[in-house]
């Protein structure tokens, strides 16, 4: 078994004449929190979709949890969780019904599933919100519910596409506390975000621009290397540099 959770090599995706992802190579170690940063439209979501087996790459290689992203998508899917940037649970079902549905799709035995839902609802402090229709929940609770749904089957790797978009700072902080606990228990986290304070929580980050990765490394080391005081500045500097080129 490979110790890297995600390895991609020259992964490329063309949409017609538009190159959304351009020879991206990356390595994400097992158990680390990897921040996948980039401006809007940089190709982050496209990359994640290829890793999750939702989108067929045009070229390049990739392995997720040790499995090939072309051939072994079904094996990959059993080992990953995915939380998209758009809330994608059923708004007319309650939180519990949503979790029960996804758990059954993962073929969890009813007894085990019941236990797991109780466990997650305590961990994520879902409380009584779990009994309400998902559509009626405030954004922060929706995000937690979505996280719970993606964690039901105890995935090795969790892909989070802007999990805290539109959520207040207190909620964001608590959400990240949960993510930290997950990482501590050995789950690999692959997170995209726009919030630079969140990027600091990551062990390593990459910055993507126009389909290419323009920087990758530990946040502190990157700051030193580029002589910047904050990630915010670093991000803006790198992107403007690219635009000038």
């Amino acid at each position: 078994m490979n110790s890297d959770a995600v390895v991609i090599d020259k992964l490329t995706k063309w949409f017609g004449k538009f190159r959304a992802v351009d020879e991206v190579s990356l390595r994400v170690e097992t158990g680390e929190i990897f921040g996948f940063l980039g401006a809007n439209g940089a190709g982050k979501t496209t990359t994640i979709r290829m890793l999750c087996g939702l989108l067929l790459p045009t070229s390049g290689e990739g392995r997720v949890a040790g499995y090939d992203i072309y051939r072994d998508t079904e094996k990959i899917k059993r080992r990953i969780g995915y939380m998209s940037q758009k809330f994608s649970l059923y708004t007319d079902l309650t939180g519990y019904e949503n979790l029960w549905f996804y758990g059954s799709v993962y073929q969890m035995a009813p007894r085990e599933l019941k236990k797991r839902i109780a466990e997650l609802s305590e961990d994520l402090e879902l409380g009584n919100f779990i009994k309400r229709p998902a559509g009626s929940l405030p954004t922060g609770w929706r995000q937690r519910l979505a996280l719970a749904a993606s964690l039901l089957h105890r995935p090795q790797i969790l892909f989070l596409d802007e999990p805290t978009g539109g959520v207040d700072p207190v909620f964001r902080r608590r959400f990240w506390e949960i993510l930290y606990r997950l990482a501590d228990s050995g789950t690999t986290l692959f997170v995209t975000t726009h919030y630079m304070d969140e990027a600091e929580f990551c062990r390593r980050i990459s910055i993507m621009h126009h389909g290419r990765i323009i920087a990758v490394g530990n946040p502190q080391e990157l700051l030193v290397e580029h002589r910047q005081a904050s990630l915010q500045e670093l991000f803006i500097q790198l992107i403007t540099q690219q635009e000038c080129v």
């Binding site: 994608s88 993962y106 073929q107």
Partner: peptide, 14 residues
């Protein structure tokens, strides 16, 4: 359209 299909497709559902 609402995005739930994508969520369903990342599960091992056949």
């Amino acid at each position: 359209e609402i995005g739930t299909l994508e969520q369903l497709l990342v599960t091992p559902i056949t």
